[in-house]
Simulated scan of single mutants.
Amino acid sequence: IAAVVAGALSMAAGEYVSVSTQRDTEKAVVAKERRLIAEDPEKEFQGLVENYIEKGLTRATATLVAQEYSAHDPVEAHVQAHYGLSSEEFTSPWAAAFSSAVSFTVGALVPLLAILLFSGPWKIQATFVMVMVALALVGWLSAWRGEAPRLRAVIRVMVGGALAMIITGGVGHFLGVVV
C-alpha cells in the first residue's frame, strides 16, 4: 500500500512538473507571437499567408483565410496555424497530476489485490497472470474505444507490461529483495 501511495504521488509530481513546463512553453510561444505581431504586423501576416500556402491553399485563398482569422484575433490565428495551440487555453498541470495519480492507483489495484489474496510459492506467478489479464483487457478496451486495431494494442500493452514486471523482478532479485 505504501508503494501504491508513493508511486501515485511520484507520478503526480512528475506529471505536474512536466505539464507545468509544457504550459510555460505554450505561454512563451503566445508571448513571442504577440510581440512579433506588435513589432511587424505585415511581416507576420505574410508569414501566416505562407503557412496556409504550405498547407495546400492557393495564395488568394490563403490570404483570405489569414485575413478572416486575423480579423478576430491575430495572435490566436498565428499560434493556432504555427503551433496548433490556443492563445487562451493552456494545459493544466493540476488536472494532469490528479489524472496521473488516479490512473496509477487504479492500475496498482490489480497487483496489490493479487499480492494480498495469494500467499505462498504461487504469489508472484498469480500476480503476473492477473496483471497480464488486466493489461490485455485495458489494451483491448482502449483500442476498441479509439476504434484502433485491437490485437496490436493488446500485444503492445502486454509485452510492455511483461517486460516491466520481468525487469523489475530481476532488479529486485539482483538486489536481494524478497517479496
Score class of each variant (00 low, 15 high):
109 L>I: 11
80 Q>G: 08
120 G>E: 01
44 E>D: 06
76 E>S: 03
117 L>F: 09
29 V>Q: 04
77 A>L: 10
144 W>L: 11
127 T>Q: 02
150 R>D: 02
91 T>C: 12
102 V>I: 15
94 W>L: 08
175 L>H: 05
90 F>Q: 06
174 F>L: 15
158 M>H: 09
46 Q>H: 12
166 I>F: 14
107 G>R: 03
70 S>R: 05
102 V>G: 13
112 L>F: 06
71 A>E: 09
54 E>Q: 01
109 L>Q: 02
153 A>F: 03
140 W>P: 04
165 M>S: 14
59 R>I: 10
23 R>K: 14
62 A>N: 06
93 P>A: 07
86 S>W: 12
77 A>W: 03
114 A>D: 01
46 Q>M: 12
145 R>L: 12
2 A>R: 11
100 S>R: 07
13 A>L: 14
137 L>F: 14
167 I>R: 01
168 T>M: 10
142 S>E: 11
161 G>V: 14
124 I>V: 11
73 D>G: 08
8 A>Y: 15
103 S>L: 14
26 E>A: 10
31 A>D: 06
17 V>W: 09
176 G>H: 08
170 G>M: 08
14 G>S: 06
134 A>V: 05
94 W>E: 06
77 A>V: 11
148 A>W: 08
89 E>N: 07
6 A>G: 15
172 G>R: 00
13 A>I: 15
29 V>T: 09
45 F>N: 09
105 T>R: 04
153 A>L: 02
141 L>F: 14
31 A>V: 05
85 L>W: 07
9 L>R: 01
72 H>F: 14
64 L>K: 01
102 V>T: 15
157 V>W: 00
118 F>S: 08
153 A>V: 05
80 Q>A: 15
118 F>G: 04
89 E>M: 04
31 A>K: 04
135 L>Y: 06
20 S>P: 13
163 L>I: 15
173 H>A: 12
98 F>T: 13
2 A>P: 13
49 V>H: 03
93 P>N: 12
116 L>K: 00
134 A>L: 08
45 F>M: 09
88 E>I: 02
86 S>A: 08
178 V>R: 05
59 R>W: 02
139 G>C: 02
61 T>N: 03
